[in-house]
Design a binder for these strands. Sequence first.
DNA 1: GTCTGTGCTGGTAGCGCTGTCAACGTTCCT
DNA 2: AGGAACGTTGACAGCGCTACCAGCACAGAC
Lengths: 366, 366
Amino acid sequence: MGRNRTKSGKIRLAEVAELAGVSPITASRFFRNPEALSLAKRTRVESAARELGYVPNLAARALASQRTEVIGVLIPSLTNNVFSDVLRGIYDASENSRYSIQLSNTRYSILQEEKLLRLFLAQKPAGLIVTGIDQTTESRAMLDAADCPIVQIMEIGPDPIDMMIGFSHYDAARAAVAHLFAQGHRKIGFVGARMDPRVQRRLDGYVSAMKDAGLFEQRLVVTTATPTSVTLGGALFTDLLTREPGMDAVFCANDDLALGVLFECRRREIAIPEQIAIVGFNDLEFMASAVPTLTSVRTNRYEMGNTAASMLIDAIDGRRPEHPVLDLGFKVIERQSSSARRSDNRPAVSGAGAANKMVALPSGHD
Amino acid sequence: MGRNRTKSGKIRLAEVAELAGVSPITASRFFRNPEALSLAKRTRVESAARELGYVPNLAARALASQRTEVIGVLIPSLTNNVFSDVLRGIYDASENSRYSIQLSNTRYSILQEEKLLRLFLAQKPAGLIVTGIDQTTESRAMLDAADCPIVQIMEIGPDPIDMMIGFSHYDAARAAVAHLFAQGHRKIGFVGARMDPRVQRRLDGYVSAMKDAGLFEQRLVVTTATPTSVTLGGALFTDLLTREPGMDAVFCANDDLALGVLFECRRREIAIPEQIAIVGFNDLEFMASAVPTLTSVRTNRYEMGNTAASMLIDAIDGRRPEHPVLDLGFKVIERQSSSARRSDNRPAVSGAGAANKMVALPSGHD
DNA sequence: GTCTGTGCTGGTAGCGCTGTCAACGTTCCT
DNA sequence: AGGAACGTTGACAGCGCTACCAGCACAGAC
């Protein structure tokens, strides 16, 4: 056996076929569509492959079949822990499939995204996951013309390219503000960093809610293009406080900023929520643990990535979902930092997040 | 032109060659080793490729050349933000090279690692980045036999497979404990989660430092196999406090735990650092922003990933580094949470981390 | 003038696999 | 009995690229 090995010493499909006593093409079929083989040959090929430790050569397969088993993923940031949750979901879903993930970082640039898209598309990916709904016209054209399934993640909007999974950042922000209104807050500040399209839509949601209540003032909004950080949260909050000392609540575009605000309040001995209420966004793990515990808008990041990859793989395999657009919703998780009145002025010793009251549920339009 | 396009409509090398008026093989050389062409042909091929928008077919290239331009990366976790920094470094370094990254998650299982390694190696990667120095015997054998450069990251140790970049977690932990000793602390607790090999070595460093000082007691150590979180930090600290109420400092195996301890202290109204000092590990961004600011051991995660990928790419291209083992060291960043006496009993309003005093520098053995 | 070496170029022959289509045997129907 | 239908199998011909080696022109050495 193995008398005609490839020079690299690797086992080829031909060797497996020879050992199994079938033609190479039959052995090939075993790996792609085992049901097409008779039970006898199937077991023969299987044991031959196992015995020889055969691993298919993906390059040869890709070349011959004119398609790859690669799912391209375009995300804007590797730093942001929001995306690490999404990615984990994607990788988990891909793990038991035959598809592998090819990840690229657009760095929040739609031009960079366009460039990467061109590169990806040239390699004929099996599927594509792209972030958001803001692409260049050129990118959009390429995606529309692509002959593979595509999922847009992180948010939902009109006119999907193919499939779409996310939630309405606009509605989520409105819900957060509505929650603060319900607690009696009126002068609600907005703190935002990076200002990518999704943060922008959170700002839009905030603005619309404030305007609806006749409470909007431009000086209540502080934003920057700088990437987010805890420290930045403190700095932006300081800005906001200078502009509007009478502020009674802050809605932060993400949880890092909210933590920064919390610490800054502590530095300034501002009582939370008595003097200032805080609401964050994303509901990262630490929010339930902070003192006081921090209210946040929970988003289903892992599920988003996981479902996106599952839907994509199903679509690649010809099982298109009934509903190509999936709204995963959000929840306002109400905690101490925004409760109308604290039951006890000193923090509870009992531990964090004992009772996370949920306020607004699933989501969006409809 | 294009009279013999491939059916998929894609431009092939042959088309480029035809337009440039050279043979396909010459055009091929242009992309692999442009210096080998005469200037005239080089410019002709270049403009032909640009004009046609040629993108090479990587599958065909891989099949013909018997090697891929893929760098395999094996990391134990996608959740842990320590790895997101490392990954960012890796992706950044790969971005301007012709290599692409293939990422897989071992989930802290060396058996899973072995399985993934087998898969990777079968595709003849151009290079490999693996986490840590604890592989199965089988994995080790495969890696030793692999005919591509390999970099081990996150820590350094004896007997590198090929290249290695990281720092001594053992020494870093000893330095953290030494810093606490220097501040006058004696009953120093250890809080650790997940207990992967690197956390284990931090514990070992802590134990040895404590034993050297004759201060080690088993009940000062609280660990769990549970993945780390801020909330867990509070819970483990609570445990520790029950066992040893007289404790005057805690060394946390990572910053999330440290933040959890900080919040738990706040809940219990334990003054930091007067009653208990805190030292974390990794120096994540929020440590400088917390109130009080938190001492931590700074590790060069981005640089580790970035340098690892750069070294690897250089090695693939035949430029092996002078020193295959690189110790990136660490720094104990001393902040309020472990200062011997606070200049002012109330936290400074001025903002965080104004003066990060560095204590122990670079590192390890030398 | 012949020979050797160097720089550049091209022809040939695959890399390992799969798409396509034809062919076979068997069953079931008319 | 003849034929259609199905399930199963195999032969052939590439996929687009590169390794290998041969060949050419030219320069310098003898």
